[in-house]
Design a protein around this nucleic acid. Structure first.
Length: 628
RNA sequence: GACCUCGUAGCUCAGCUGGAUAGAGCAACUGCCUUCUAAGCAGUAGGUCACAGGUUCGAAUCCUGUCGGGGUCGCCA
């Protein structure tokens, strides 16, 4: 069924026949649109065997193919490029067999294999922001890609529901909250908890401001000896430092030190200890406030259209991994230092020494990740495990995967960090302390409002009910947002400009949706005609062939997107297909065509395109609309 | 300082497992709706692919160095 493979086979045979040597790795490319042909074979690497000029070699292979390969109708040679023209019957046959295939786009790349995609993994002390949006959209879409490629998929969310940051919100609420609840304030739960996180940070800043000034000028006397030692060291460096960057960093260090010595932070740390000790009052407050956050997250998730098969909570998993540390010690993978702390030496692998367990026997971040990796495997026996986490954790995952490998875990090779770039604002990085974060809920609402305004302005939605209209605005707004984010290569950092907002024209989600809606309009006007059962026209126009060729590529694009974990591949493809179809739409009037075979063929092509656009958009988590 | 990563049109991005004259969209300008949805289509203009070397028949793509942006280098997560 795959043309490319068949053609490669033919070329390999041609080379062997002509030059008496087996061809190694024959590669094909799609012919540059400026030249005639479907596929291009570059002959330069063959010159050593053919002992001839590029032109003559290409000519010889071309002739051989034309005689022996049934699918090749013609060829032309430009320098060392052999452009092969395939018979148009092939495209007509493809259209005939696939135009109404509801499974088109589903592949078997991963059939029989199971993969876990862990994404979202929020902290429960504040609402989601633009950075989380990229994470969530990527995770959801990558899970869709794996499903489309035939994998069984488990979508997991590892919720960071414990720790010092949550205690900050809790403490601030306790001190300043006056018993506020989501019900009493009408605030979404995650926003209410986030509000108290900000309250905490503000109170902390107020408390520490005078001390920080003292400390920076060298006049601070910390209460604890430990802090005194650190302070003396940093302040000493500060006095020596000349470089501006270094000075700023040392000042930040001092700031951090002062903050950690503040009474507010000490109270927070005490609260964390109380939580770990299971003091009922603290546990109750923790449960209550996390409950608020979860109900808020649920709404955001639902609106974004993301979902999970399994939730893990760090309050349950944070103690995992200690027994694995023991195992690692016995295997000699880890070693213990005099103070009792446990380490792994990764210097031979180009990394560093890494702590895996504190001297007092408590876990660090990586300890629980080691344990959780085992837990995931025990529960699901996945062949692959994808972690959708920002690229600031590249090093962490490098270390984690290496440790799992050294521990001899069979699943270690299937672990993959989908490391995505940060989302920048025109002002630079988002910083919660400076209040420059873009809130996820606000962002979605703005997009939907914008979609509504644009739709009303164009005035093409007469006859739709109120409910249908709201669904339309929701779909268009989210489509613009999702497409904007997903069309960029996940690995790269990207820029988001809220001022200019997101366009609805050009390379956008609504553009692809529009193409789909147009086709639906045509198909509606063809209702009542029997266009489905007639023959396919084999005398296709160039633009028709081009559209079919684009459709033909789709399953390969799905596989590529899946193996690259890159929804951007699908987004770019959707633009390509939509643009190609729109050109066809412009050149060929479907319903006005008088020849019934030609007309019906075009209807099938339109139907096929609509199916594929819908499939692609769905992979991106975008819903299609029938009218817009 | 060490390591990782990015640098393509005014702006946002494709192209990167080496192949032909480096592509889209936005912004600017010009056309196309008595015909299936103009959220569309066609066209004009816009490039030392950061810079310098190297490998190769061939480099935006691979290697080295320089410059610039970002990240990491916690017994934080």
């Amino acid at each position: 069924m795959n043309l490319e493979q068949a053609l490669i086979q033919h070329i390999a045979e041609a080379i062997e026949t002509l030059y008496g040597q087996p061809a190694q790795s024959v590669k094909l490319e799609h012919t540059n649109p400026d030249f005639a042909g479907d596929y291009t074979f570059v002959v330069f690497p063959l010159l050593r065997i053919s002992r001839s000029t590029p032109e003559a070699t290409a000519e010889a292979i071309g002739n051989h193919l034309k005689q022996h390969a049934a699918i090749v109708s013609d060829f032309n040679v430009v320098k060392g490029f052999l452009n092969l023209v395939l018979k148009t019957d092939i495209y007509a046959d493809f259209l005939k067999s696939q135009w109404n295939n509801p499974q088109f786009g589903q592949t078997n790349l991963g059939s029989g294999k199971k993969v876990m995609v862990e994404y979202s993994s929020p902290n429960t002390n504040k609402p989601l922001h633009l950075g989380h949006v990229r994470n969530n959209l990527l995770g959801m879409s990558v899970a869709n890609l794996y499903k489309a490629a035939g994998y069984e998929v488990v979508m997991a969310n590892l919720v960071n529901d414990r720790g010092i940051h949550i205690c900050k919100s809790m403490l601030a609420w306790q001190k300043f909250g006056n018993g506020e609840t989501p019900e009493s304030t009408g605030m979404k739960g995650d926003h209410l908890v986030g509000k108290y996180y900000v309250v905490f940070e503000n109170a902390l800043r107020e408390e520490t401001l005078p001390t920080i000034e003292l400390a920076i000028s060298g006049k601070w006397t910390p209460e604890s000896d430990n802090a005194q030692t650190k302070y003396t060291a940093i302040y000493g460096q500060l006095q020596q430092a000349t470089e501006e960057k270094q000075i700023a960093k040392l000042k930040d260090d001092i700031k951090e030190l002062v903050r950690n010595q503040s009474s507010l932070m000490r109270e927070t740390q005490q609260m964390l200890r109380d939580w770990e000790a299971g003091i009922p009052e603290v546990i109750n407050l923790w449960q209550t406030m996390n409950g608020w956050v979860y109900s808020g997250f649920e709404k955001t998730y639902a609106r974004l259209g993301v979902a999970f098969d399994q939730y893990y909570y760090e309050s349950n998993t944070y103690k995992l991994g200690k027994d694995v540390v023991e195992e690692g010690l016995q295997k000699g993978v880890f070693y213990r230092k005099d103070d009792g702390s446990v380490w792994i030496d990764l210097r031979e692998d180009g990394l560093d020494e890494k702590l895996v367990l504190r001297g007092d026997g408590t876990s660090v971040y990586i300890t629980q990740d080691i344990g959780t990796a085992d837990l995931k495997y025990q529960e699901h026996h996945v062949d692959q495990s994808i972690y959708v986490v920002g690229n600031e954790q590249d090093y962490h995952f490098k270390v984690l995967f290496l440790i799992m490998k050294k521990l001899g875990r069979p699943f270690a090779n299937g672990m993959h960090h989908l490391s995505y770039g940060m989302v920048d604002l025109p002002s630079g990085k988002m910083k919660s302390r400076e209040g420059t974060v873009v809130d996820a809920d606000d962002l979605v609402q703005e997009m939907v409002d914008e979609a509504k305004a644009k739709t009303i302005e164009l005035g093409k939605t007469e006859g739709l009910t109120e409910t249908q209209l709201n669904q339309l605005y929701e779909s268009l707004g989210l489509s613009a947002l999702k497409f904007f984010i997903l069309k960029v290569d996940p690995r790269k950092r990207m820029l988001f400009n809220p001022q200019e907002s997101i366009d609805f024209q050009g390379d956008t989600g609504p553009f692809v949706q529009y193409t789909y809606a147009r086709i639906q309009s045509i198909l509606r006007s063809a209702e009542g005609l029997d266009w489905q059962s007639t023959d396919i026209n084999t005398h296709l126009l160039p633009i028709e062939v081009e559209t079919i060729q684009t459709l033909y590529r789709y399953p390969d694009e799905v596989n590529k997107a899946c193996s690259d974990s890159s929804p951007a591949v699908i987004a770019q493809y959707c633009i390509d297909l939509a643009r190609t179809f729109n050109r066809f739409y412009n050149e060929c009037h479907i319903m006005r065509e008088t020849d019934p075979i030609v007309k019906n063929t075009r209807l099938k092509l339109a139907h096929f395109t609509a199916h594929t656009l819908k499939h692609g958009l769905n992979l991106l988590g975008i819903q299609v609309v029938e009218r817009m």
